[in-house]
Amino acid sequence: MAMSKNVRQALGLTGHYSGLILFAIFTTFPFLWALASGLSADASKMYLFPDGFWPHDASFMWFERVFQEMPFLTYTKNSAIMSFFTIIGVVVVSVLAGYPLARMKFPGRGLIFVAIIATMMLPSEVGIVPNFITLKNFGDFGNWIQESLGLGSSWNMREWIGLNSYFGAIIPNFAGAFGIFLMKQAFEAIPQDLIDAARVDGATEMQILWKVMVPVTAPSIAALAIFTLVNAWNDYLWPSIVMNSKEKLPLAVGVFNDLTGPFATSDNILMAAIVMTVVPVLVFFAFTQRYFISGMDGAVK
């Protein structure tokens, strides 16, 4: 009996781990393949299986070439700027929209929430044309301000808020149903007593929000930040439409424009660029990971 129990346990564990390993392989193999190809000076084995999965004639040559073939650092800087402000924008909008939906009573609350969720049903491509037109008008408005203030054309305010601006490339992503939903759920999970305690302690509604609610929902905010970072970092379509000067392109667009197509150098350099593109996100994740685990422990009872 004891034997068979051990055997069953071992079998169970084996099954468990083989499942996990399979899943890990399944999710990481594109990255491993890209890494192996990027590190291979010998480009011929890239599309062979299984040879493609380890470096041949290993060197950092392709990684160095990336910096020569395209302005990698400029693109990285652009991606960083755009992602950073997208995260700020998304978090601020989601917190400010989620809080009243979760915690305040006002007429039409349910309807507003349903309307926000309903936008999830629409593919984001639907927004492209109207957003483009809106941005163009923003640009015209910027230009109008510039002219009415009598500033020189070197100010180029059209490109502060209109087409070909960082602002324009990220603003449509600020208000997302997902973030609002996530923060609403997080705020709903906070015990009422905690809010009441802050109120009795003399906090105004805004102080309750920023000094109690937001810190307590830090894990949700961290999750939202990661999720937003990944989306913003990988955003391709919209920036590629809005941005038309090379020095403002983010990584995803830049890598695609410079390293693919009929005149591309080689697929290995593309792989090297992709690996370098992914690394900052992984680093960011490593640093924010610990915020996921601290939460409401100890608040009540």
Binding site: D193, D196, G202, V216, G298, A299
Partner: peptide, 27 residues
């Protein structure tokens, strides 16, 4: 509530989880 000069102790304690004990007391 914040202007009544009243302090309340809740059944669930309702401590602020992100603050230390001293910060909780001094909030």
């Amino acid at each position: 509530a914040s202007k009544r000069g009243i302090a309340m102790v809740f059944q669930s304690y309702a401590l602020y989880p992100h603050m230390s004990v001293a910060e909780n007391m001094g909030f």
